[in-house]
Design a protein around this nucleic acid. Structure first.
Lengths: 201, 201
DNA sequence: GGGCATCGCAACGGAAAGTTGCATTGTCCC
DNA sequence: GGGACAATGCAACTTTCCGTTGCGATGCCC
C-alpha cells in the first residue's frame, strides 16, 4: 500500500505559503515571540528553507508585511462626507477582520521593532493620510464641514474607534455600529449623534 | 582602594524594584517575549530571587499588573458633561503616559495570555464602565445629552482616540488636543467640533 | 553578636533556536 | 525523454538561553 504523497512545493507558491503562515503567527503570537520554526511547521515546510530565503527574522517579517501593505486601498467619492466615511470605515473593518489585516495592525502597535519595520510603518501611515485629507477637503468645499476642520483628528478618531472594538474589546462591528459612530463624530452626541439606533427590520 | 559597595536590597523594597522592572519590560518587550532574566538584570537583582518569589512568569506579571490596577481612578462630577469628559481624559492621558500605565494598556491588548490575566483584564474593564455610564446618565438628566445616548460608544471613542495618539502614533496629547477631541465628539464636526484650536497665548 | 531568612553567584541540565552536509525532488533545457 | 542544476527536505550538530540547584554571603531581628 502506497501512501498518497503531496508533491513538493517550491518557488513562488512556497513563498506565498510561508508568508501567509508568518502573518498568522504574527497575528496570534506577535512579533517578539515569533519563532521561525513555528512558521515552518504551520506552512508545512522545512525550517532550513526559511532560513535560506530569509536569513534574519526581520527579513521574513518585512516581506510578510510588504505583501499586505496594499490590501487596504481607500478611495471613493460618493458626494457626501457621511457616505464617504461610512464606506471608508466599512473597508477598514473588513480589512482589519482578516488575518492579514490583523497582523499588520498588530505590528504597527508594537514598539521596539527593527528600524526598517518602523520605517515601513511610517511610510504606510503617510500614504493613508492623503486620501482622507482630500475627502475632508471636498466636504469643506461642498460646505458640509466648516473651514478649519482637522482631517487628521476626524479620521484618526473614527479609525481608532473601530480598531478599539475589533482588536481591543474583541467585539464585532456591524454596519449599524459604524453608522452610529459616523453620526456621533459628525453631528455630535449633543445633537443625537451617539444615540442607539433601532435595529432595521 | 575600596570600591563603594551598594548595600544589598531585600524585602519590600526589592519587590517594588522587581515589579517596576517587570512593568518596564512589559511596556517594551511585551508579554510573550518577556524573560525573567531581563527583568532581573533591569532590576539589578539575581534571577534566582525572582524565581523563588514568583515561580511562574504569570505570577510575576499578575503581581505587576495588580499593583498598577488602581493607579487610574476615575471620579468627579463637575456639573457639566464637557468638563467631566475633559477631566476624565486628562487623567487617562496622564495614566497612559507613565510606564506603568503603558504596560497595563499593552497587556490588555494582548490576546492569548493566561486565563487569570484575561480575567483580571475583564474585571478591570468592567469596573471602568460604571463611572462613565453614571456620568452620561447625569448629563441626560441635566438635558445636556439626548435620551438614548450610548454611554459606551461615547466613552470608548474618546479613550480609543487618546490611546491611539499616545501608543499607536507616538504623539503627545496636550490639553488643547483633548479639548478639541471632546468638542468633536460632543458637538460634531459638522458644527465645528473638530476645528483646529488657536493656541492660547 | 548570634541565629535565621533572604539574596547573590556560579555551575549545571535541558530545551529550543539556528547551522551544516547530504540525499531527494522539481524544473528547465536540450 | 533524460540530464544538469537549483531548490527543498531531513537529520545531526552547535550554540544560546531559560530555569534549577547548591552554597556562600549578607541583612535583619532578637
Amino acid at each position: 500500500m502506497r501512501t498518497r504523497v503531496e508533491p513538493q512545493v517550491r518557488g513562488e507558491r512556497l513563498v506565498g505559503k510561508v508568508l501567509e503562515a508568518a502573518l498568522e503567527e504574527l497575528a496570534t503570537t506577535g512579533y517578539a515571540a515569533l519563532s521561525i520554526e513555528s512558521v515552518a511547521d504551520r506552512a508545512g515546510v522545512a525550517k532550513t528553507t526559511i532560513y535560506r530565503r530569509w536569513p534574519e527574522k526581520d527579513d521574513l517579517v518585512l516581506a510578510a508585511m510588504k505583501c499586505v501593505a496594499d490590501d487596504f486601498v481607500l478611495s471613493g467619492d460618493t458626494g457626501s462626507i457621511r457616505d464617504d466615511l461610512f464606506a471608508l470605515l466599512k473597508r477598514f473593518r473588513d480589512f482589519a477582520s482578516t488575518t492579514r489585516g490583523a497582523s499588520l495592525m498588530r505590528m504597527m502597535q508594537v514598539e521596539g521593532v527593527a528600524s526598517e519595520l518602523t520605517e515601513l510603518t511610517r511610510r504606510m501611515r503617510k500614504d493613508k493620510e492623503t486620501v482622507p485629507q482630500r475627502m475632508v477637503a471636498r466636504a469643506i468645499r461642498r460646505r458640509e464641514l466648516p473651514r478649519g476642520t482637522d482631517p487628521q483628528l476626524l479620521l484618526d478618531t473614527l479609525f481608532a474607534a473601530v480598531q478599539n472594538m475589533l482588536m481591543f474589546k474583541g467585539e464585532t462591528c456591524d454596519d449599524r455600529k459604524i453608522a452610529q459612530l459616523v453620526d456621533l463624530v459628525l453631528v455630535g452626541a449633543v445633537n443625537g449623534g451617539g444615540r442607539r439606533l433601532r435595529r432595521a427590520k
